[in-house]
């Protein structure tokens, strides 16, 4: 399975690239922002924390750049991301772990819904070229895909939460309750997550519709589809089992690649809805210039996306025999 080996190689290289970007950034930026941050927090945090952060940002360090680099790589691989200055004395890892499940849940659900719905609409609109669906939806969603996620979020918030009052203004669950496993709590989570998820679905569905429609149009011209028609198979069967089945593969690869974009959009949506995921944490880190927290968030979001990409790659390898033979 050399295809899978190559994908694994890519995974490792990309994680390494993200780690290296994190290492280089504070060292090449003009004006030494890391030092400025430490000066502001001096006296408020323990000397050990200062020492650890100096190592991370390469300040007052007599070690060679290579020693620093390997020390940093070692720390990160052991899961030691440093201390958050915003949430002192909590380790950065803990802060991120609180936010990550919320983001993964929100983005995961919204992306799966958008993918399923978009693929279906794209398929139908290609099947009936020039029909109602084909005439209205693709152009409409091109326009919507040009909307900034967060602004659409603000719009949705204005209409459904502020004006109509159907949904809560934000956060992931009622502030009066705490996290527990009950139907009531699950209901709250769904209730609070509805508007952010809706925003992500509306903005990301257009891409799926368009890609699916365009590949489906090419696939419908294939000889095996003509053959299926000639055999007198039912249209539904031809649409799903012959054309749709083959047209979905580019969408599936696109699914993985788009996750980075979706997460980027979701970060801003979280900020609009005060949703307690990593995006919201990232905003707090930006406002308090907590670089250690910011960089860890960047790293972990990258790894989360890469794991999803890898999963989609394996799925493609399983579904499409050509990827296996190509090796």
């Amino acid at each position: 399975m050399s295809y899978i080996a190559r994908r694994l190689e890519f995974f490792v290289i990309t994680v390494w690239a993200a780690l290296t970007i994190n290492f280089i950034l504070p060292r090449i930026m003009p004006g030494n922002p890391g030092q400025a941050m430490l000066v502001r927090f001096h006296g408020r945090v323990s000397p050990q924390t200062i020492k650890a952060l100096e190592v991370a940002f390469g300040i007052n360090n007599n070690e060679s750049i290579f020693q620093q680099y390997f020390e940093y790589l070692g720390n990160t691989l052991r899961g030691d991301f440093g201390t958050s200055l915003t949430f002192f004395p909590a380790p950065v890892g803990d802060i991120v772990k609180q936010g990550l499940p919320w983001t993964l849940g929100l983005v995961g659900m919204a992306t799966i819904i958008a993918f399923a719905l978009g693929t279906l609409i794209g398929m139908l609109s290609a099947w009936r070229r020039g029909g109602f669906l084909d005439a209205i939806l693709p152009p409409a969603f091109i326009v919507i895909s040009a909307f900034p996620y967060f602004w659409l979020g603000l719009l949705v918030l204005l209409v459904f939460a502020i004006t109509l009052g159907w949904f809560p203004l934000g956060f992931a669950y009622d502030l009066s309750s705490s996290i527990n496993l009950s139907w009531d709590f699950a209901g709250q989570v769904a209730w609070h997550g509805f508007l952010p998820a809706l925003t992500i679905v509306i903005t990301s569905i257009g891409g799926w519709i368009l890609t699916m429609r365009n590949t489906m149009i090419t696939t419908l011209a294939e000889d095996y589809v003509k053959m299926a028609r000639a055999k007198g198979l039912s249209p539904v069967r031809i649409m799903f089992m012959y054309a749709g089945r083959n047209a979905i593969l580019p969408n599936l690869t696109g699914f993985a690649m788009s996750l980075g974009f979706v997460i980027s959009g979701a970060i801003l949506v979280e900020i609009v809805f005060n949703y307690p995921g990593v995006g919201f944490t990232l905003l707090q880190a930006v406002h308090s210039e907590d670089f250690a927290l910011m960089q860890t968030l960047f790293l972990l979001i990258t790894i989360a996306v890469l794991v999803a990409v890898l999963a989609a790659d394996f799925l493609t390898a399983w579904l499409d025999p050509r990827t296996r033979e190509q090796a």
């Binding site: 950034l25 922002p33 959009g265 970060i267 670089f291 960047f298 979001i301």
Partner: peptide, 25 residues
């Protein structure tokens, strides 16, 4: 090609935020 793929898959917004925050002014 590898460099392109790496840049393609890295989530851009967190990266942009980190860089822009460092170069705040």
């Amino acid at each position: 090609n590898l460099v392109t793929d790496v840049f393609l898959v890295i989530p851009t917004l967190p990266l942009m935020i980190v860089v822009a925050a460092y170069a705040a002014s």
